[in-house]
Design a protein around this nucleic acid. Structure first.
Lengths: 414, 414
DNA sequence: AGATTTAATACGCATAGCGGATAAATACAA
DNA sequence: TTGTATTTATCCGCTATGCGTATTAAATCT
């Protein structure tokens, strides 16, 4: 039970101030006071402390000379050099690493196109460790300057415990990846569901800026679901991130009715491969060009391919419609690599959602399709770590990370 | 944006103290201090204020003379007479009203077996108004002593706005039932999904005491879903309570795949009625004895009836399995009137859940079947209102009800 | 240059929670 | 019976917080 003391009070308000500065770029104290509804006095006190700790910096000049009349407002912004963090994204066939500054600007990124799925966890940890060290070094930073690292990966992740319960990446279960990497790198490493990272990124920088409720559905090799609910990342009991692929979309009968068997790239590809067997396309699948081939054939009018994409879209639409019924989010962001952009997939998806969402919720949810750059994962991972550094006091996001009053901030903290 | 000031601090801590007193019966200040992790000094100050406002009272004597040695601890408990509230539950064929005290003990209850579904909203409001006045009068209380009223009803309810978006009770949509009754009765009336009431009741008094995550599924004329997540009632964006019956459990194809078409008593009965047409049982359905007949026939081995109950259980199991995938709750409470207790329904339900919950979540959720008394609705409605009176400051439960610092407490608030 | 206007801060106040000292109320022991 | 030990509850002083008012700072306008 969290007891409310003056310290918590200050933590809450400081977080609000930090959040206002992060969201509204260079911003004056008066504006912060308006946004946060804190008194100018309090804002002044808090920003003074933040300036003292060098978490924020005043903007030199060139301040907007607009209002004209009185004393000009001093604009404040995050100090990009206040801290640096590293974001890592693990996909079955690729490791992406990004080093960012305190504003979540990517300083340096690194992509390793390696198939890591079904590798033993220690091997993966080796690769991640090397990747992180390389990426940090490329950014001309010593490891000591890194204030935190976040690793995103598909599957069921228990962030609080730093444990990956199950993932297409790992053959093992209950991999304590967070603690392992923390020991290896000497920096606090948190792990989270990959979709949660991009959900936070969309919330901070993307299409859902300022939106307190929305869903993110990622369609990649496997399926991911991120939920922002009441301004917070949604997690199940014990902080478990749900695995969207495990949702049932069809009666169990033949072949399993889980979403992952219908709408993931893996399932679609294996279905197409089976359908095209003996037609001379084996090489394409072997080389990882299966999805491109599928989309190409569909565009050429191949009914089997169109049908496969359509059933995938319908199955996903079924699942999303149920989520809309539960969460009533005003926005749903669907994204992925290639398939998610195809009209043969998105069309049936949209139609299914429109048909299945209950009448009372019709038109509340806007469905947005989006293609992500590699960078967004890194920014999301950065955001996840920065959220803690900014001092979110009530976060259900993670455990109370036993750290000093000002976090793992590098440099002299006064 | 809520600004954190000393007042909020006190509100939070006062709520924690009230909550400890409510949960752990007569309790001493020291124990409160232990449970809340507040300093004894603070607990003393807060309890002094609560005593001053007569929200709590010291227990006279007969204190447990156990520890023996030092100064005996003074036990504190809620003052049952600090306030009185009324809970109302609307079902298609019945209105239940209960007057309770500050401890959510039912003082007087009243059941009106009236078919109200499809009556115009003003008529229903008339009936509710009369019922409330009657029940309050029976409890020998003047209306002025009632601090709040909560009405639970099936369907999609937007508690914050006091509006019922859609309900099997109302033929209209967007019924502003809360404001209407508030005007009629001169007492603050809130409305909520009926399942939310019983969810809160289970959390406060029932099988889920102290459990921060669980699901409640009610199987009555229609289906209801209540979710307690992270210790708070779960609501969709805008505070909308989802309607479980709108969840899809089968592909849309023929006849609609919504859960309400498979597993509600209404759907099961209509299916049975169709199956038995011409077999001389019409009277039973006309008189509302359809469910009893169905269960009786199933018990006698009628395969059609057993099959109907089984598909209902399987469909509900499908939906619950998906919820478990999302929320990972340690407990699921299934309840209702008659059908929910039948092994022909619960058996397939359990089997389906066991089969469909992903392996990684197997055995996390315990499925409990429970039959509710009429009283639980009233206690739940009372709890919902008392929650506000106790001063929950962060509640996503409702809007900030513009009221004095001590709520709608009757009597002299010093 | 002085008036005006707006931004930011200094000062004092009220309230919060907490720690140590103190009072209260009982059981135990001589 | 009286004194001591022990546990509970409160009193007092301390620090931290947010806020309101008055004050200073820094620009524009006249």
């Amino acid at each position: 039970m969290k007891t409310a003391d003056p310290e918590l009070m200050r933590a809450i308000n400081r977080f609000h101030v930090m959040d206002a500065i992060r969201r509204f770029g260079p911003i004056s104290r008066v504006e912060i006071s308006q946004f946060t509804e804190l008194s100018p006095t309090t804002v002044s006190a808090i920003t003074a402390a933040l300036l003292d700790d060098r978490l924020i910096i005043p903007i030199q000049e060139g301040a907007l000379r607009d209002a004209g009349r009185g004393r000009p407002r001093v604009m404040l912004r995050l100090n990009p050099e206040a801290a640096f963090v590293v974001g890592v994204k693990l996909a079955p066939d690729q490791i992406t690493v990004a080093t960012t500054n305190f504003c979540a600007d990517v300083l340096q990124s690194l992509t390793l196109p390696i198939r890591i799925d079904r590798q033993p966890a220690p091997v993966i940890a080796d690769l991640v460790e090397d990747g992180v060290r390389q990426c940090v070094s490329d950014a001309r930073l010593p490891m000591a300057k890194i204030a935190g690292i976040c690793v995103g990966l598909p599957g069921i992740v228990e962030r609080a415990a730093g444990v990956c319960r199950q993932s297409p990446i790992f053959s093992e279960r209950d991999v304590n990846f967070g603690a392992d990497l923390t020991k290896r790198l000497g920096v606090a490493v948190s792990i989270d569901s990959d979709v949660n990272l991009v959900t936070l990124a969309e919330h901070w920088f993307g299409q859902a800026r300022g939106l307190n409720d929305f869903l993110v559905v990622s369609v990649e090799h496997s399926l991911g679901l991120g939920i922002l609910h009441n301004g917070e990342l949604f997690r199940g009991a014990n902080g478990l991130s749900p695995d969207f692929g495990d949702v049932m979309v069809r009666p169990p009968g033949s072949g399993g009715g889980r979403l992952s068997a219908w709408a993931s790239e893996a399932s679609v590809l294996s279905e197409v491969e089976a359908a095209l067997r003996g037609s001379g396309h084996e090489a394409a699948f072997r080389d990882g060009r299966g999805m491109a081939l599928l989309l190409q054939l569909a565009a050429a009018g191949d009914q089997r391919c169109i049908g496969i994409l359509a059933s995938a879209g319908e199955a996903l639409g079924f699942a999303i419609a149920n989520l809309i019924t539960l969460f009533a989010p005003p926005k749903v962001i669907v994204a992925g690599r290639a398939m998610a952009a195809s009209a043969f997939f998105i069309g049936p998806l949209r139609e299914t959602i429109a048909a299945l969402v209950p009448a009372s919720l019709a038109d509340v949810a806007e469905i947005v399709v989006r293609e992500w750059s590699d960078g967004i994962w890194g920014r999301g991972a950065a955001a996840m770590t920065l959220r803690d550094l900014y001092g979110a006091p009530w976060g259900t996001t993670g455990p109370a990370p036993n750290r000093g009053p000002l976090g793992l901030i590098t440099g002299d903290s006064h």
